[in-house]
Amino acid sequence: MSAIVGIVAAVAIIILAALTDGDPLSSLFSLTAVLIVFGGTFTALVTQFGAKSVLTAFARCKWLVKPPSVDMHAFIEQVAIWSNLARSQGALALESELESIVDPFQKQGLQMIIDNMAEEEMLPTLEAMAAHAARDDIIASEVWEAAGGYLPTIGVMGAVLGLIHVMMRLDHPAELGEGVATAFVATIYGVGSANLLALPLGARLGMLAEARERERHLIVQGLMLLKQGKSGILIRQTMQVLLSDQKKPPEAAADEAPGNALPEAA
Rank of each mutant, 00 (worst) to 15 (best):
H73F: 00
E175I: 03
V156E: 06
N84S: 06
Y189G: 15
V156M: 14
L94Y: 07
G179N: 06
L197V: 15
V37K: 06
G39H: 03
M207Q: 15
L242W: 14
E264Y: 07
F184H: 01
V220P: 04
D171L: 02
E119Y: 04
K247E: 11
Q108F: 13
M129N: 15
E142V: 01
L16P: 12
M112E: 10
V79N: 04
R214C: 00
Q78P: 11
A140Q: 05
Q89I: 05
G6H: 04
R87A: 10
A181V: 05
L126M: 14
L226Q: 02
F58A: 03
A186Q: 09
I235L: 05
V143M: 06
S244L: 04
E127L: 11
A198K: 01
L199I: 15
L226S: 03
G40R: 04
G158R: 00
I233A: 13
G148W: 10
A181G: 15
G162E: 01
T125S: 09
A261V: 07
V180P: 10
V5C: 00
M157C: 10
C61V: 13
A130N: 11
P250A: 09
T20D: 05
S83A: 10
I113P: 03
Q106P: 04
T47S: 12
Q108E: 14
L170A: 11
L16V: 13
A10R: 01
K62P: 00
L196Q: 13
H132D: 15
Q106R: 07
G158E: 08
F75C: 11
A17L: 14
A44Q: 04
G222A: 13
L19T: 12
L226Y: 02
L226T: 01
